[in-house]
Amino acid sequence: MKPLFVLLVTFFVAFLSQKLLFDQYVLPLSARIAMCVMLFFTAIGHFAFTKGMTMMIPDALPFKKELVYFTGVLEIFLGIGLLISPARIYAAWILLLFFIIMLPANIYAAIKHIDYQKGTLDGPGPNYLWFRIPLQLFFIAWVYWSSIKY
């Protein structure tokens, strides 16, 4: 829920700032700025809640902690890439793939009742997926519309 809030608030701030500062606005640019800020926000979680994030990765995968750090850094670079014109399309396609790959981790965490912030097994559970799966699809559509379509 927090990433969605960050995304939407940043979008409206970017949109209004463009209007006030430049007397124009470009919706896709506002959307890319918002996604960049949201990715920075979620990347912080990879470093602040590493223990809980490693719990979201199935036991069969090695180097869990390193993978959590890597994905945090990747989110930062992809967010920046959305704002650099020559890199935007590539960053967007990688980000779409990233969102698709991360969905099973979110499903796994919900099924196992993982609370990644606390690093415990008392999270919201499978009912959370009624929100998380549409949210992930919304993020995918957001990136596609703001970075690939335009």
Rank of each mutant, 00 (worst) to 15 (best):
L96H: 01
A34E: 08
V143S: 12
G119V: 01
R88H: 04
V6D: 08
V13H: 00
L97I: 07
P62K: 11
A14E: 02
P124A: 11
W142Y: 10
I133M: 15
P28F: 04
L97F: 02
F22R: 12
L39I: 02
S147A: 10
K149Y: 06
L121K: 08
Y144A: 11
A91F: 04
V143R: 13
Q136D: 09
G79R: 05
A87I: 01
F77E: 14
L96N: 10
Q18N: 00
L61A: 13
I84L: 09
I33S: 04
R132K: 08
I148N: 12
E66M: 11
Y116I: 00
L8M: 11
S17D: 11
I140F: 09
V9F: 13
R32S: 01
F63K: 14
G81I: 00
L16S: 10
P3W: 00
L103Q: 13
G52H: 10
G79K: 01
P124L: 08
A34Y: 01
T50D: 15
I133K: 15
W130T: 08
L74R: 12
G79T: 02
A43R: 02
G125A: 06
K51F: 11
M102D: 04
P126R: 06
A109G: 07
Q18C: 05
P124E: 13
L21Q: 14
Y69R: 15
M102F: 12
L137N: 12
L103S: 04
T71L: 02
P28G: 09
C36T: 06
Y128D: 02
M55N: 12
E75D: 12
K51C: 00
A109H: 08
I89L: 06
D23G: 07
G45D: 07
L95E: 01
G52I: 04
D122Q: 09
L82W: 05
A14P: 05
P28V: 03
Y90F: 05
W93T: 06
S17K: 13
A43H: 03
F40W: 03
M1T: 04
Y128A: 01
L61H: 14
Y128Q: 02
G123I: 02
N127R: 11
L7Q: 14
F138H: 00
M56R: 15
V73Y: 15
E75I: 00
M38R: 03
I76T: 12
V26M: 03
Y108P: 00
G79F: 02
F131R: 14
A110F: 05
L16R: 12
E66Y: 13
G119N: 14
L4G: 01
I101G: 08
A110V: 01
Y108G: 01
D122A: 07
F98H: 10
F11A: 14
L135G: 00
W142T: 07
I100H: 10
K64V: 03
I107C: 02
F139N: 11
A34R: 11
I148Y: 09
W93P: 02
